[in-house]
């Protein structure tokens, strides 16, 4: 009986913890939105520079995405390792 409750509480904690860890993805989403919004505006003003802007945009998106990926890694670690 007590063992069942402990197991259930462990699973509950895991799932809630993984869900809370994924809150960090909000920042990555905002960052990617800002980066690509700025890039599209820049391309609209100066279509000739689209190539360079696109390269820099992808680089910026990768940096912004990295923090979201850390949150994802933490969530995956909670779910599948502990």
């Amino acid at each position: 009986m007590v063992g069942d409750i402990v197991v259930a509480a462990t699973i509950l904690g895991k799932l809630i913890g993984a869900g809370l860890a994924m809150v960090g993805v909000i920042g990555g989403g905002i960052g990617i939105g800002v980066v690509s919004g700025g890039a599209v505006q820049a391309m609209g003003r100066n279509p000739d520079a689209a190539g360079t802007i696109q390269t820099n945009m992808i680089l910026g998106i990768a940096f912004a995405e990295a923090t979201a990926i850390y949150a994802l890694v933490v969530a995956l670690l909670i779910l599948f390792v502990f």
């Binding site: 990768a62 995405e65 990295a66 990926i69 850390y70 994802l72 890694v73 995956l76």
Partner: peptide
């Protein structure tokens, strides 16, 4: 860390 976890996280996910 940033290099390693970026690639790992993307592909594992």
């Amino acid at each position: 860390l940033s290099f390693g976890f970026r690639l790992f996280g993307n592909i594992f996910a």
